[in-house]
Simulated assay, not measured.
Amino acid sequence: MSSFYNKVTKQWLTKTVCDGRPGLEVQQDCNTDDETLEQTEDTDIDAESNCTRSTANLGDEDRVFFDATDSSDCDDDNELHDIRLEEVWTSDDDSETDVHVPQGCQMVSQPVYYFLLLLLFWKAAFRVSASSTVFIVKCIKYFVKLLGSTYNCAKIVEASEQIPVTLMSVEKIIGLEKKCFIEYVVCPQCSVIYEFSDCVRTLANGKTESKTCRHVATPNHPHVRKRKACGALLLKQQRRHKKCILAPIKVYPYRSLKKSLCHILSKPDYIEKCEQWRSRMAVLANDILADIYDGQVWKQFTEVELNRFLDTPHSYLLTMNVDWFQPYKRSIYSTGAIYLTLQNLPREDTRM
């Protein structure tokens, strides 16, 4: 004799064999609901066998007690399972997670922000020029707008309106740090610097033109022709955005040393890193040269009695570097850099 559950009649049936002929007889109704049985069958086969055990050879009182115990256990398990699911869904919906939202996402939508971020990564990785990057941004902007208009999708059209058309706007949305350089106009002949406002002359008809260099190299020379001004043009006309503007022939970008030091030392732990070299020199031997701190020039500022500048805490030693190079292979264009490096920083940190 064996027992099994009929889902159609919702009854327990006992299969018996009488004189070699199989037969079915009703044993008892199931006290568990359909949901409990389906969960039991799906989760554990052993639990199903425990809930479907036969009680034919038990007494009436024992059978009632046994059935009540099994049904209560199954109901308690289902109730606990429901509570756990409810707790999980409640914690997922009601919990406030700290999600980092970039500042640029407040200006544009998140897909547009990450598109512009990938665009700048691509520009830096393949060394694409600024004009080429702006051209590609414009093409993508108009293509996305055309795509949204064709398929009548307002969200795509709205996203296309958020795409900027200038590289400066892209960098502003991404939040790139600006160097805050002041650009001076440089005379192409005598290398005298001017402010841009001192290089523009406004004519009577409202147009503007470039001034010439007023620098006199030898104002006290006995010959008159040697006391003439340089006279070189400082600005040239360029066409940008369908307009003719005046742009410097040569530019000298400059950033204040005070602002640069404030920017570097405002980074986390940079002030402490600039003082690590003091403990490092006590570890190495005198005959080992591992860094700039082991050289004679550095020791002149620490060991010479008349010039112990670095003995005072938070004293910084700067080195001036001058380098001229040609950035392009197929054109004659020279670029020079005059920069200072902070030597107090460890080698693993940048000293720029």
Score class of each variant (00 low, 15 high):
Lys242Ile: 02
Gln343Ala: 11
Pro188Ala: 02
Asp77Arg: 13
Tyr194Phe: 08
Lys273Asp: 04
Cys30Ala: 14
Arg84Cys: 11
Ile136Asp: 06
Gln237Trp: 03
Thr208Leu: 06
Thr350Leu: 11
Cys244Tyr: 07
Asp46Val: 13
Lys273Pro: 00
Glu209Tyr: 06
Lys228Gly: 05
Leu317Glu: 02
Arg351His: 11
Cys30Lys: 08
Thr350Val: 11
Ala282Asp: 15
Arg240Asp: 11
Val322Asn: 12
Pro111Glu: 06
Tyr5Ile: 06
Gly231Arg: 00
Lys228Val: 01
Gly231Gln: 00
Cys30Asn: 12
Leu176Phe: 08
Asp19Trp: 07
Lys141Met: 03
Ser266Cys: 02
Leu146Thr: 14
Lys329Gln: 05
Gln300Gly: 15
Ser72Asp: 11
Asp73His: 15
Asp70Thr: 15
Gly336Val: 00
Ile271Val: 09
Glu79Val: 06
Ser2Cys: 10
Tyr113Met: 05
Asp98Arg: 11
Ala282Ser: 15
His100Phe: 14
Gln276Ser: 13
Lys258Glu: 14
Ala154Met: 02
Ile140Gln: 03
Cys230Met: 00
Lys267Phe: 06
Cys213Ile: 02
Asp323Met: 03
Phe301Ile: 05
Ser279Gly: 15
Leu284Met: 15
Leu80Pro: 02
Ser160Asp: 00
Ile45Trp: 13
Ile288Met: 10
Asn344Phe: 05
Cys51Lys: 10
Val134Ser: 04
Glu183Lys: 08
Leu317Lys: 06
Ile156Ser: 08
Ser334Asp: 09
Thr335His: 10
Pro248Val: 03
Gly336Thr: 00
Thr14Met: 09
Phe66Asp: 12
Leu120Tyr: 04
Leu176Tyr: 06
Ser49Ala: 15
Gln28Ala: 08
Gln27Trp: 05
Asn78Ile: 12
Pro102Thr: 02
Leu118Gly: 14
Val192Ile: 14
Glu161Val: 05
Phe143Glu: 08
Gln28Trp: 09
Lys267Cys: 04
Leu167Gly: 04
Leu24Asn: 06
Val170Gln: 01
Val157Glu: 10
Thr55His: 07
Glu209Leu: 08
Pro222Ile: 03
Arg347Asp: 14
Leu261Gly: 03
Cys187Trp: 01
Asp287Gly: 01
Val8Arg: 13
Ser132Glu: 12
Pro268Asn: 01
Lys226His: 12
Ser331Tyr: 05
Ile173Asn: 00
Cys51Arg: 14
Lys258Tyr: 11
Phe309Met: 15
Ala337Phe: 12
Asp67Pro: 04
Pro222Asn: 02
Tyr184Ile: 07
Trp12Pro: 01
Glu348Phe: 10
Ile264Gly: 03
Arg84Met: 11
Asp67Arg: 14
Cys190Gly: 03
Lys207Ser: 11
Lys228His: 09
Asp76Ser: 14
Asn50Ala: 13
Leu235Asn: 02
Cys153Glu: 12
Asp19Gln: 07
Ala290His: 11
Thr40Trp: 07
Gly104Tyr: 00
Ala154Asn: 05
Tyr184Arg: 09
Gln300His: 15
Ile245Tyr: 09
Ile174Asn: 00
Pro188Asn: 04
Thr43Cys: 13
Leu246Thr: 03
Ile156Gly: 04
Gly336Ala: 09
Tyr254Ser: 12
